[in-house]
Design a binder for these strands. Structure first.
Lengths: 214, 214
DNA sequence: CCGCATCCCCAAAGATACTG
DNA sequence: CAGTATCTTTGGGGATGCGG
């Protein structure tokens, strides 16, 4: 008899699903892809998941080695959840899932969280295009969506860094606005309330390389 | 309000999970990766899933465009389930999941189905090694596991074909045995009851390229 | 037979309230 | 802030049965 409700198969796919196949599990992991978060942050990012479900998923994901709890050093002292190295290796899974999901015959609808917008940019960014000399540029971007700040660094046409945190004023471009406005802008609504400061050409290169999909 | 129990997000990952995130859904798809199957075949391959769950998943997967029902031409006349082109594009997802799952800190245990053994060979086969001239070989393999027969073709060090069906006697090697015996053999149990007929060297190349993992 | 539908039971998810 | 306790609702597991 399997522990909880596993598939009881030795198949590597089934084994992966034993770890991250439960409802909300993979979305919890997604929320940690750009860095550690506290319980309340996760709760706010995943409004559909109740606190009991969330705490249970966190416990199970910790037991299976996908994430770990950590207490930040004083004076912060907050408890945060962060991916283990093995959990961080789920990136190819996210990439494959997102690229598959984007081709769905049934349309996607709904809001994108600030994190999802940034992760989408990275997912659909075409790293291979860096072989084309005309597309090998370098730039530092800062995105300010709702209350969250992200730093994105492109070096020679490749995304080298995407992290929660600011650029200390060193950004070539700063994009600021509500996450909904930025989402609409990426979907082609050119009139939405997004503030762009700095090198617009660098921003266009980024959006072009990402195919303007998120 | 979302249709059934979707995540209600526009995120491409969440949207993918809306389609294949439900319990058993991705394992149903896995069962169809090597070709169409009938309902009873699926039921036999997934003993843990009850008939109600199975038929429901099939209906949902059909609605979301992952698979379709088809009636085989006479005299067979059987109803089979097969992947749509979009469903077949889940291959990178399986590849990423399997390669992640194999690195799990908690050990895998349990039986491998005949299909899973063959799919594992393909998943962990190193296609990139084909750049090495010493590993560019060509061979036709036939595997007979339990009642199932598989044809696997390697051309210039790459797996060009893996299908349910025999080789019409044209195979360079034939591997026959129970799926459990073959699984044990691949796990290193050299004494298990597997019959190998033909070019053993070609078989060794294949197992080596797959890292003997399934 | 094969392809499900129905039924019953339990476990998991959803919602809300509450506590160390 | 970070969860637990509790209750209701929904979905999954397993058996049985029925129509084509």
């Amino acid at each position: 008899m399997p522990d909880r409700r596993g598939y009881g198969e030795a198949c590597a796919v089934a084994h992966a699903l034993d770890a991250i196949g439960d409802r909300w599990a993979l979305l919890v992991v997604r929320e940690l892809r750009l860095g550690p978060k506290r319980y309340s942050d996760l709760q706010a990012s995943l409004p559909g998941a109740g606190p009991n479900v969330l705490s249970r998923r966190l416990r199970e994901l910790e037991e299976s080695g996908v994430l770990r709890r950590r207490v930040l050093p004083p004076p912060a002292g907050a408890r945060v959840y962060e991916l283990t190295p093995w959990g961080a290796e789920l990136e190819p899974v996210f990439r494959a899932l997102a690229r598959w999901g984007i081709g769905s015959p049934v349309p996607r609808r709904g809001r994108l969280s600030a994190d999802s917008i940034m992760l989408g940019l990275r997912t659909f960014f075409d790293n291979e295009a860096a072989t084309d000399p005309a597309r090998r540029w370098t730039a530092l971007y800062e995105f300010r969506l709702d209350q969250d700040v992200y730093r994105l660094r492109v070096v020679d046409g490749r995304i080298e860094e995407l992290i929660r945190g600011d650029t200390g004023g060193a950004a070539d471009v700063v994009v600021a606005g509500s996450s909904t406005a930025v989402q609409q802008a990426l979907e082609g609504d050119i009139g939405s309330a997004v503030t762009i400061t700095g090198d617009r050409e660098a921003l266009n290169r980024l959006l072009d390389a990402a195919g303007a999909r998120v």
